[in-house]
Structure formats: structure tokens, C-alpha cells
Write a protein that binds this DNA or RNA. Sequence first.
DNA 1: ACCACAACCTGGCCGC
DNA 2: TGCGGCCAGGTTGTGG
Length: 273
Amino acid sequence: MPELPEVETIKNELEPYVVGRNISGVTLFWEGMLRQPSVREFHSRLSGQGITGLKRRGKYLIFSLSSGDLLVIHLKMSGSLIVGKDSSEPPKYTRAIIRLDGGTSIFFSDPRKFGKIQLVKDKDDIVGKLGPEPLEADFTPEVLAQRLSKRKAPIKAILLDQGFVAGIGNMYADEALFSAGIHPLRPASSLSQDEVARLHSAIQQVLRSAITNKGASIVNYLRPDGTPGTAQFQFRVAHGRAKNCPVCGTPIAHIPIRGRGSYFCSKCQPEKV
DNA sequence: ACCACAACCTGGCCGC
DNA sequence: TGCGGCCAGGTTGTGG
């Protein structure tokens, strides 16, 4: 599932293929993926536009166009953007094709059809409500502590809240909490100063390591060249990777939090402090 | 302001 | 072997 490290990898690896190119046309095989504007307007505003930049914010990919429009893509759980030749066979579950001049196409493959594509004038319409970027300088332990102090929900639920901090999803929330030795059900405001410091460090370490490994290919995620990332081999608890805790051997617990499967070690991540 | 949960989807897995 | 049922999960929308 594409989270921050996966989307960052896609941004980095897609950039050389798209920036400086012109969009010759877009085909939508599943119109439900288009959030705004209308299909008709989408085609007319995209056709012939130059791509002047590619950025990531949270889990969103933002293509800047020469018209000033922004093409925003969210891959949700199962989306991939694969680079190929116009003439090549589209990957399975291709829902859209962005054709570029020079014979290159970007194939948007998405078995679950959750992915979304939209065209806007102002990026803040979409990413304006996102929390801080966890790898940027303004995300300090002090900022994290201050924001956590106002929240009573389980820390796992807070980490998944994109308005609290952008880009963390189910896998990296579990990994960061395990790394920091914090139980996922702990009320956010109950974390000690030391625990907040450990959590801050764990979030950054887990995300940076995953970016170094080009993202985690658990289900569906592939890099733009079609190859998998290797970050999943670094996981210790996420996605039920281990039956037993890699540190103490205790069976890994699996409970739903906010409807999301959560893996943790009840001994290394004690609920009562 | 904060919190909780259903809805959106379909491939893959489990049990019979 | 085949089939039905259920799970996964990011974001939006709704309601408390």
C-alpha cells in the first residue's frame, strides 16, 4: 500500500520521465477515478499541457502543468504508476493511461479502483488540511508533543490521521510504535516526554529506511519501472510479518484499531506504564 | 474541535 | 475442485 515512502519513491523515479514532457492525451477506462472536474473538461484542460514539476505532499502526487493547473493523483491502497512505451501492453488492471510526447506512457494500474485523479487550480483545495511532513525540519519532537497533548484518541489512530501528520499509513504506524515501544491503544495525550521523543525518532527512522529501500511491496505496490521495493524485508511487526516478537519472542498481537489491523508486541509495547 | 464509523472496491484467502 | 463469504485499508462523508 503506497504510504509516504512509496509515494516518495514514485515521485523520485517518475520525475525524469515526465518533467519537461507534454501530455498528448489521457485515456480513462474507469471514470469513477476522476474526482473533478467533469470528464469533458478534464480532457480539454489536460491535452497539450506541459509538465513543469512533480511533487509529493503526504500520500498525494502533484503534477504542475504549464497552464497553472495541478494534476493530483492519490494511489490509495492498490494503485501503481508504471512507465512504458505507447506501444507496450498495458499492465493488468490499468484504469488510465497518460500519454506523453516522445512515445512514453504512464499506466495507472489499480485493481481495487480506489485510486483518485483530479485537476485543480489551487493545491490547498486538496492538501491544505494535511498535517506537517514528518521528514521536514518543522516536524520537531516539541511540535509533536504539543500536538499530541490535545488528543485523547489511541496513538495509532492519531498517527493515521493525515491532518495530524501527513503520509503515515497502517504499516509505518505499526512499525514506528513497535520501534518506540509504545502500545497502539495508549491515549495520545498520555505519552511521556521521553516516549514522544522515541516516537518522533522512530517515525523518521522507519520512513527514511523505507525510502532507502524504495518502498514496501506487500500488496500491489510497484516502482515506476515495474520492479518491487524491498522495505518490507525491514519490517518487524507490520502486516503480520512475524508470528512472534523479533525482540522477546512473545506472540505478536493483532487487533483492529479504527477498523485497521494493528500488529504489536504486548510485552515490548506495554499498555500500562 | 474532537472522535467514531460506514462506504467505496475487488483480489485473494479460508472453510466446507 | 468449486464456491460462497469475508477481509484488507486511505479517504470522504456523516453524525455524535
